[in-house]
């Protein structure tokens, strides 16, 4: 449903142009909510901490620590990429096809090998930020998941609107987008994880863990594949257009 929006040629009217970013942001927030429901990415460690201390504040702190690690992992990949695009690739659209290949490949890899990378099991439980950083950066692949969204958002505004930013403005615009995008996924994650942990802590109890713990990772792998296919579908025409305009 998204690709129709992006495949449209330049020079559209304003109302259509607004749909693209709105849908993208909705998707980013939705992915944050989904990750927030994933037990290891917040509510499970937060609940464990809440039960251990019998208090709410440490529960929220633990959820926040997981969210912070997630946020840092997003920034660690997206910020250098955004800066790279701003400085080296004024029109990032040719990178979209490449991001599609990465997303698709990662989704397939996760289906083939759903286990966590082994080194994560060696991170001590008292270091939740570090744990979450590496978990998000590797097993979840959250920053990678946001790669095509970043490319699209960068492309949408300056290119779609026909804006021509100077290099300085372009850099701050792209970096700003990366930071905002990371927050757009992390804040819903924090809210959902804290909410679920509080609900279980206050009323529902531990017994439900077995019932509530679905293999959300499986759906996440499928989402990678879907995003990858979408990015490839959108990226291919843009790559062709880019090549035509730059090579002859």
């Amino acid at each position: 449903m998204l690709d129709g929006e992006f495949l449209l040629p330049l020079g559209l009217n304003g109302s259509d142009a607004m749909m693209g970013p709105a849908l993208l942001w909705a998707m980013i927030v939705g992915m944050g909510l989904y990750q927030g429901l994933n037990p290891p990415m917040g509510w499970l460690p937060a609940l464990a901490r809440g039960l251990e201390t019998g208090r709410t504040a440490p529960l929220i702190q633990r959820a926040a620590a997981i969210a912070l690690g997630h946020y840092a992992a997003m920034l660690a990949l997206l910020v250098p990429l955004a800066a790279g695009f701003a400085m080296l690739l004024p029109d990032p659209s040719p990178a979209l096809a490449a991001s599609g290949v990465l997303l698709l490949g990662f989704g397939l890899f996760k289906l083939w090998r759903p286990q966590h990378p082994r080194f994560i099991a060696r991170i001590p439980p008292r270091q939740p930020v570090r744990w979450s950083f590496w978990m998000s950066a590797t097993h979840c692949g959250s920053p990678l998941m946001m790669l095509s969204a970043l490319i699209n958002l960068i492309w949408l505004e300056p290119v779609y609107y026909g804006l021509r930013f100077g290099p300085g403005l372009r850099l701050s615009h792209d970096l700003g987008l990366a930071v905002l995008l990371a927050a757009g996924m992390t804040v819903p994650l924090l809210v959902t994880a804290s909410g679920v942990a509080l609900l279980l802590h206050r009323t529902l109890g531990l017994r439900l863990i077995g019932r509530l713990w679905f293999n959300l990772d499986f759906g996440w792998s499928l989402a990678f594949i879907a995003m990858g296919v979408m990015a490839l579908a959108m990226g291919d025409p843009r790559l062709m257009a880019y090549c035509r305009s730059h090579l002859g």
Binding site: P45, P114, I120, A121, I123, P125, W131, H139, W213
Partner: peptide, 8 residues
């Protein structure tokens, strides 16, 4: 089921 053990 330990939170950090991950994939149960």
């Amino acid at each position: 089921l330990c939170p950090a053990s991950g994939h149960p």
